Simulated assay, not measured.
Amino acid sequence: MKHISDLPDTIPIFPLPGALLLPRARLPLHIFEPRYLLMLEDCMKTSARLIGMIQTRELPASHGRGEPKLQAIGCAGRLTGFSETEDGRYMVTLSGVSRFRVREEVSGVTPYRRARVDWHGFERDQGGAEEDAGFDRAGFMDLLHRFFDSMDLSTDWDSLAEADEELLINSLSMLCPFSPEDKQALLEAPTLITRRETMVTLIEFALRGGTSEEIMQ
């Protein structure tokens, strides 16, 4: 476990709507855009090897063209898996280290985006796995079965049944077809318990034919 003082103040940012990374979880990525290929090459030259995954906020129609604005909170992952295809694309794995809050974007010569970030407030992310003492696995799995059936999704139910609470909740948060706004809410949940409660709310609304806008009201 690293102390927050050991984490860099400035990191490369990979804005990817719908892609969620959480602490102690792993996110596979397929990189092919030239500016992000350069970002990976630069990342591998650093000791931290961190990349900040973050959601974007849609620009209003009157704003015109330009880079989308970033959400306030993202999650940094350490580059732990890397392979290159014959046509020059990268298959990589990021292992979640800690969430961060964006202080400001950094202008510079790199074609990819970078930001100064603040790690304070997320010290728990670098500890051991969280537990959910009140987790009703049987009830949750029943709800999940109904949700997957309604969405015509398949999964390895045996593996889900054996996974510990954190791996189960975080993996589903990352993999389920929630909207970017919903995934941002899951990312910002302060504890595993609140993340599970948020997910249950999202699933229940989806089963009732509800929308993210209704949840926010």
Rank of each mutant, 00 (worst) to 15 (best):
E131G: 14
E123S: 03
S212N: 12
W119I: 06
L172I: 00
F122D: 01
F82K: 06
G52W: 05
G88D: 07
S95V: 05
E123I: 04
S62C: 04
L167M: 13
F122C: 02
S159L: 13
L207M: 03
G210Q: 08
S83M: 12
S154Q: 12
T85Y: 06
R99E: 06
S62H: 11
G209N: 07
P34C: 04
A189R: 00
D136Y: 06
E181V: 10
T194I: 09
E33Y: 10
F32V: 01
Y112C: 07
H120D: 13
H30Y: 14
R101L: 00
R116V: 12
V109H: 15
E188Q: 11
G108C: 06
G210H: 05
T46L: 08
A61K: 13
T110V: 11
A138E: 15
M216Q: 14
R101T: 15
N170L: 02
G88Y: 02
D149P: 05
E181M: 14
E214T: 11
V97Q: 10
P34G: 07
M91I: 15
Q184R: 05
L7R: 05
P15G: 07
A161I: 01
S98C: 06
E162R: 14
D118W: 04
D149M: 09
A25N: 11
E131V: 15
S47H: 11
E104W: 00
F100S: 04
L70D: 03
L168F: 09
E181W: 11
L22V: 09
I73D: 03
T194D: 12
Q126S: 10
M141G: 02
R196P: 08
S62W: 10
A161G: 11
E130G: 06
L167G: 11
F122E: 00
S150P: 00
G96P: 07
V97I: 15
I54N: 01
V92P: 02
M91Q: 12
E214D: 12
P17E: 09
P8R: 02
E130K: 03
F140I: 06
F100D: 00
E105T: 15
P177Q: 00
A25I: 05
S95H: 13
F205K: 14
S150I: 04
P23V: 00
S159K: 15
T93E: 14
M141T: 07
G52C: 05
L207P: 10
E131S: 15
E86I: 10
M44D: 13
C43L: 11
P177C: 00
P34T: 00
S62F: 12
Q55E: 14
L175E: 15
I51S: 01
M199T: 05
L38F: 05
M44N: 11
R137L: 09
E165Y: 02
L94Q: 01
E166M: 11
S98Y: 04
E197I: 08
G121N: 06
A25E: 13
R195N: 01
I31M: 09
